[in-house]
């Protein structure tokens, strides 16, 4: 088995009386596409929020490449190469697709107040240099035609693509996708899956939450199943598919 790049130990989160997440141990291994599935309310998105530090866990610890990041700010964690998307897409509505991408790719240094005020030649060069990568990424995502449109004019599926594209501008090591296929039409879904596979083959590790079981089984190397905040099954797609506990969890939940 390959190296673990993300490691989670006894992570817990409660909301009032509800135990939203209670994960003893979770590892993400180098080079894999891992999917997180489970019935509604299983705590998948909360788990995502916890490992990306968008919410604070009550207890437990998170290691990224053996560095303890349990107390790190979410934006600092993203700088370390772990970039997420959101279940409900969060594009910058009143900025163009191009600006969305450029903001994502622009370096933090150049966004400094003084640097932006002085606007040295290097800053301009670096900013212009981003355009190459933006065009490349937008072409990959079939969004190049929409480059100058406001992000809010995009369809639901295109917004998902833009969010993915924005994340790619960060050159992520780990990409966490929260329901990348939700609300996306079947044709676009196929394309998205291709893109995800393609990204993985370029060395980006992918962890995704997804409800489309067929898609999950098709592209994942490993599937992790959550129910009621706990991981109940973990393994190759075929193993998980036949796991009795998984079947029970899905049948037992009334809302799925």
């Amino acid at each position: 088995m390959s190296n673990s790049i993300l490691s989670v130990k006894s992570l817990k989160k409660r909301f009032g009386g509800l135990e939203a997440v209670n994960v003893d141990s979770f590892e993400l291994y180098e080079g894999e596409i891992t999917s997180l599935i489970g019935p509604n309310g299983a705590g998948k998105t909360t788990f995502f929020d916890l490992i990306t530090r968008f919410q604070s866990a009550d207890s437990g610890s998170i290691f990224l490449n053996e560095k303890n990041v349990t107390k790190l700010n979410s934006y600092k964690l993203a700088r370390l190469g772990m970039v997420r998307t959101f279940q409900l897409t969060r594009v910058f509505d009143r900025m163009s697709v191009y600006e969305n991408m450029k903001f994502a790719g622009s370096s933090i240094k150049n966004e400094g107040f003084l640097k932006s005020l002085i606007q040295t030649k290097t800053l301009k060069q670096q900013e212009d240099h981003l355009n190459v990568k933006i065009d490349e990424t937008l072409k990959l995502l079939n969004l190049i035609e929409m480059k100058d449109s406001y992000a809010r004019e995009l369809s639901g599926g295109q917004k998902k693509l833009l969010e993915l594209g924005r994340s790619l501008m960060k050159n992520p090591k780990i990409l966490l996708l929260d329901e990348p296929l939700a609300g996306v039409n079947p044709k676009l879904s196929e394309e998205l899956l291709e893109i995800i596979l393609n990204l993985n083959s370029q060395g980006i590790n992918i962890l995704m939450v997804e409800h489309n079981i067929d898609a999950v089984m098709k592209i994942s190397k490993r599937v992790v199943v959550m129910a009621e905040g706990k991981i109940i099954s973990d393994g190759k797609p075929d193993f998980v598919r036949s796991d009795q506990k998984v079947i029970e969890a899905y049948l037992g939940s009334s809302d799925d």
């Binding site: 700010n73 993203a78 970039v83 959101f86 594009v91 009143r94 969010e163 924005r166 994340s167």
Partner: peptide
Amino acid sequence: EDEDAVRALGKN
């Protein structure tokens, strides 16, 4: 537009 997305992209 969206603070959470800003944070997710590594910006403070």
